[in-house]
Structure formats: structure tokens, C-alpha cells
Nucleic acid binder design. Sequence first.
DNA 1: ATCGGGTGTGTAACCGATTACAGTTTTATA
DNA 2: TATAAAACTGTAATCGGTTACACACCCGAT
Lengths: 323, 323
Amino acid sequence: MATIKEVAKYAGVSVATVSRALNKNGYVSEAAQKKVEEAIKALDYFPNEVARSLYQKRSKMIGLLLPDISNPYFPLLMKGIEENARENGYSVILGNVEEGSKLKQDYMTLFGQQNVAGVLSAVEGTVSQNHSMPIVMLDRVLEEDDYAVYTNDVKGGILAAQAIMDRKPGNVLIIAGPKSVPGSIDRLIGILSVLNPTDVNYEIHQTRSFTIEEAKETAEVIFRKYKKIDSVLASNDLFALAVMKEAQTRGLHIPNDIQVIGYDDIPFSQLVYPGLTTISQPAFKLGYQASDLLIRLINKNKISKKRIKLDPKLMIRDSLRKK
Amino acid sequence: MATIKEVAKYAGVSVATVSRALNKNGYVSEAAQKKVEEAIKALDYFPNEVARSLYQKRSKMIGLLLPDISNPYFPLLMKGIEENARENGYSVILGNVEEGSKLKQDYMTLFGQQNVAGVLSAVEGTVSQNHSMPIVMLDRVLEEDDYAVYTNDVKGGILAAQAIMDRKPGNVLIIAGPKSVPGSIDRLIGILSVLNPTDVNYEIHQTRSFTIEEAKETAEVIFRKYKKIDSVLASNDLFALAVMKEAQTRGLHIPNDIQVIGYDDIPFSQLVYPGLTTISQPAFKLGYQASDLLIRLINKNKISKKRIKLDPKLMIRDSLRKK
DNA sequence: ATCGGGTGTGTAACCGATTACAGTTTTATA
DNA sequence: TATAAAACTGTAATCGGTTACACACCCGAT
């Protein structure tokens, strides 16, 4: 790889002039600009980002902290982030942190050591040690987070509950997501705000994670534990799919014997039979906007909204009964 | 963030001594070592990786090039990579490249500018411009790739085809993956090596991608185009799931009317009804081993095998008929 | 003719680490 | 006790960029 020094030599100018020509700041004569551009082309030169980062005390990278990339909801998020970041000349360092692990602090330290320009985190309790490193929380957001992009989960809960209430439920089972995940609580609040004023029977089954393993377990448990359930509000699509499968295995017909609604709208919801009716979280958009907000913060651009709340949407497929 | 200079001052030694104490090379007296360690703790010092990278002309990062992170096969791969990389003190820069895009060269340049220590790529035709930057190909591997970790796709094809042949197929449909993906061809070779010696009827339907959109389209098309198919060998699980759904929508019973086998064993294959019988690619292990191989290359460690071929496995669930 | 500002350019300091080199002290060996 | 080797330490160069600063030139206004 050629260096700026070699370019300067080839072009017959100083490194300062090359740098100015490259970054188009400061005065550079047309003649010099042209010589530099020729030299760059001739030597196939690309500036070393590491050297830049060192001087600027800030790299063109953003750190991304995710709780579990094997959860299919996150890849979409990542895609949105990656796309926006790339469009803005940033790249993404990946940090995968098992739920509740202490690894998140290690990653934050690492991000600091790498001079990342900012951090996107979907892990609760992410704190910056370095004040010059902005953080935008996404998806899993607390009251106290300054900058955040997330879904209106109360509304999501309401949409899901209304969809069920519109379809004459008998006994409803709510599978509630882990209490450690802020969104789970909001969804439950939304759901209950719809169910409580009615006289519908419901029970709540509490879960501890969003993993596929627990989804499978849970699906088995609920059919033993709760008899005569005919409507299920699941905390995410994984749980919904697991319940559907278990129901079908037990010879129950969906949606006639039991109707199910999910949450997230992961791509697979369309690929099962019957298609899963679910609440769509705009994952790609969430990621894209979060990256956008972070980069605005980095560049100290005007910020219209510190917390961006996106609306979920009801995706009607075939796992609920006809109205 | 504290710098090495501040640590040196606090400890009453030179920066050279601090550096030697940090990296445990060169001579450092016990007294000095202790003073440095105290200073580090007192100032909460972590060495700046960017400065290190600049001097070493190599960072503690590896570049990862993936063709489509929204394909659920890749997150597992990523998880394996991330885990191994982290264990070895490396972090991962993400590069998502739409199939066939020219973006891959941009990313390779970027990786160069970032002084990455090496690159893992699942994108065909990835070439290094910088000889000191080793590349390990994974999953999508060509003959000419020096270092690679991949699945034995011929064997995978054979396993799938045998599973079908063991279960008295009438008319078989092979959904072949895109020709641009090396593995697709091998799978087809494997499948045909089993089918051709028999007198079973089969047809081949060629596809252009592994996307969910094409999977849905294809599922519709094949039921119109190919009548009386009763066994389907899909190029990946997405296509298999789409076919299952379409079949069920048309009132066909799986596996009695039509049996389906997939490829990949993405986590969802367990969550559909009936469970999808498929060929399991050890995605996590693939990623883990690829990272391991790359880091060996980076450290110029002994390498026992330049190309690592992992074996696929038949996962029997319920989408095939009884033997 | 003189002054001032706008242009254009190069030298050198700087970012924060590693390490070559030189100098000093301690220790071991003859 | 002399002497070499080992142990320890600091100064300064280095990695490859950016930019403060100084200097030189050109042009128009006084």
C-alpha cells in the first residue's frame, strides 16, 4: 500500500498539499490538485484510516452491541444499520453479547480502545465510559436513555389484543416476554389495557428469554398447564411458531381450535402454514434510523428528535379466526 | 481516556517501560512492573488500539464479507466467527454485500485502509489486493481458493437424495440453487449421482437466488408447472418451507401427498409443522473453524489443513414419509 | 511605492502506541 | 578484583496521516 509520502514525492509536492488536496480543505492550486490526483491514481493510493483515526481521536467505525444475533429479528436490524452506516462512510464493529452477560462492558472498553465514533446498542444497561462517544439505544430502550430508536410497544400490545378481541376469544393465554426486556412490559401493558375492561378470561405465562429453546419448551408446557386455551398472544414470533407447531402436533386446527398472534414479523412468519398473523416491527427501518441518529450525533448535526418511536403494524395472515 | 504518557508520569517511569510492562516483553524490574500496574489501575488505563495498529501496520480486527445477512443461515455462521475471534482478542468488521454486487471490492479496500489482520469471506470471487492480508473463504468456496472452510456439498446432496430414495418416491422435483454458488452445483452432482443409476423420474427446476422472495414465487410456480410431483429436494430450507406452505395451502398432506427435504437446517426447520427433514450444515462450527484458521494464518502458526471440509448430517424430522 | 489580505506551499508538531539503540547498573564468572 | 554478560531504563525514531504556523507570492487599494 502506498503512503501519503510516496504520493507527495511522485506528485512533487509536500504531504501537507496532498492531504489538503485529498480532503479538499485549505488552499490548493489547480495545478497541484491535478498532480496529486494523478499521483493517487498512478500509485493506487488509499489513505490509511488508522492513521487518520489516531490523529482525529475518532475512527470511521461504529460499535454495535446485540443481545443475540441468532434471534432472526436482529439480522434485519443489522442490515438497516449496515446500510445507513455504509452510506455515511462508516463501518460496523460487531459485538454479540449473550443475554445478561458481563461481556457488554468488555465490548464497550474495546470500542473505546478502537476509538469508535459512536455505539448502537440493543443491550439493556449499556453505559458509556467515554463522554465523547455517543450512544444510541435501539429496540430495547429505557426511560433514562437519552437517545433511542424503538417501537411503540404499548401500541403493539394494543394492536395484538384488539386483533384477538375482534375474533371472539374464549380463554386467552398471554405469553409474556422476559421482564428484563423493557419492551415486554410495555406490550403486556398494552395487552392488558385492552383485555381488562372486558370480561374475557385470560392467564399470563411468564418466560425468561426470547430463545428458540425456551420457545419449544414453553409450547409444550402451556398445553399441559393451561387447559382449554383457544387464543394465544405470544411475546414474539418464535414463541408463536412453537405454539402453532405444538398445537398442530396435538391435532388442533389453527385457527379454529386455537388462534395465535405473534410479535416481530420475522421473515419466516410468512413461510409457515397457516401464515402467522403478527405485529410487525419495522426492524430494518429501526436500524437505519438508529444509525442515522447516531451519525448525526457524531457530526453534531441538528437533531429533530432525541427519541424516535416507530409504529408497529398488524400483519394479518391466517393464524387468527375470521372476524 | 488516559494515555501511556500519563501512566508513565504517574508511575514515575518512561513510556518505554510502561509499554514493556504492558506487553511483558523486554526487561522490567519487579518494582517498575508494580508501579506501572498501580498506575494503570489508578488511571483506569487501556491502551489505544488505533495507535498500536498504526505502528504494527495491522489491527486486531478481521473483516467479514457476507452475501446476505438476512438469510438465516448466516447469523449462525457469524456467531461462530464472533465467538472465536473474541476468544482470540479480535473483533469483527461487518460487510454485507448483496449478491453479485460490486460492493465487495469497496469493502476489501476499506478493510485494507483499516489495516485489518485478515478477511473471512463468503462472497465468491473475493480477492486480496494486499498480500499481507490473509483471506479464508467460507461456505462458498472455489477450487482455487487457498484457504477455505466449507461443507461437503456433494455428500450433502447424496444424503438428501438417499433419504428420498429410501422412501419410495414417485416423481421427484429437484430445486437447484443458483449456478453462481459453488455449493449448489456440488449438491446437484451429489443428488444426481444417486438418482441417475435408478429409474426414478425426476425434473430439475433452476433458481437464481436464495432469497425468501424467490422462494415464495418458486413454490407457486412449481405446483403449476410440474404436475404430480410427490417428492421435493429443495436447495435450501427457505425453499423447502415455501414449498411446504404452498402444498398445505393447496390441501396436500405432508408427507403423504408430497414429501420435502431441505438443506441448511436453519433453526426454524424445527418450528414448522411438520418438522422439516433437512441436511444440517454445521454453520456455527464452520464460522468458528474459519476464524480459527484465519487467526492461525495471521499469527503464522502451524496449519494442519489449508482447506477444511466439514460433513453435513441428515436431520430426520417429519416431512418425509416413513421408510 | 506601500500595505494588507487572499492564495499557495512546506516544515514540523502531533495523535498514542512500539521498539531500536544507547547508556547505566547489577550480577555472574574467571 | 577485573570483566563480561545480563538486567534495566530512557530518549528518540517510527507508523501515516492532519493541521498549526511561518513564509512567499500576487493582487488591488491607498
